[in-house]
């Protein structure tokens, strides 16, 4: 059961509808945590803008970004986030093998190159709340300084989104499949 109702556009003041429309424009619709986040429309727009940036701006390959997102979702066991982004990962060309390894929690075993590196970064950051010199150095060498900051932002954003989904018990919608083994 949804804990808080989604907000519809006609419930908002005209100023707040501006934020609603911004979110729709950057994302294509109101899905996931945004229906509920629109209870605070301007803040929802801030979060959506950060989300648009970490997903679409910067230099990281989109497929690799989705690997980061599903790895983040797996760390916080967000079925919704994993399901939504596994679909995007497949569409971007991430292999089924990679997705399954991340879903099962065995990654980075069996992963290589960039995928292995970013999954290690996600896991260290979210499990230890720090990053070793070796991992930071490897990420910085590979993605540069800007890319490293943006990678951290990508993880942080999807951590925030996953937490909101969890707090409001947002359920999988029709067509979404739980992929993290319970």
């Amino acid at each position: 059961m949804a804990r808080v109702p989604d907000v519809s556009r006609d419930q908002l003041s005209s100023e707040e509808q501006g934020y609603y429309d911004e979110i729709v424009e950057s994302r294509g619709g109101i899905r996931g945590p945004y229906g509920v986040m629109l209870q605070s429309p301007k803040l929802a727009a801030c979060v959506a803008a950060t989300g648009a940036y970490v997903r679409f701006e910067g230099d990281m390959d989109n497929a690799l970004r989705e690997v980061v997102v599903i790895a983040t979702a797996r760390e916080i066991k967000s079925q919704y986030e994993f399901s939504a982004h596994a679909r995007l990962a497949r569409a971007a060309g991430v292999s089924e093998d990679t997705i399954q390894r991340i879903a099962k929690g065995t990654a980075p075993d069996g992963l290589s190159g960039d995928e292995s590196l970013v999954v290690k970064y996600v896991q260290e950051l979210l499990r230890d709340h720090k990053i070793s010199d070796a991992t930071f150095g490897a990420v910085k060498d590979r993605f540069g300084v800007k890319g490293t900051v943006e990678l951290t932002g990508l993880i942080g954003h999807y951590l925030l989104v996953g937490q909101v989904l969890a707090a409001f018990a947002v359920e999988l919608t029709e067509g979404m499949v739980a992929e993290i083994p319970e």
Partner: peptide, 17 residues
């Protein structure tokens, strides 16, 4: 509650940076 949840997430993100 939305604002509370986002604040927690935002400041965790800051801490991770």
């Amino acid at each position: 509650v939305v604002e509370l949840s986002v604040i927690i997430g935002h400041y965790k993100m800051i801490a991770l940076f």
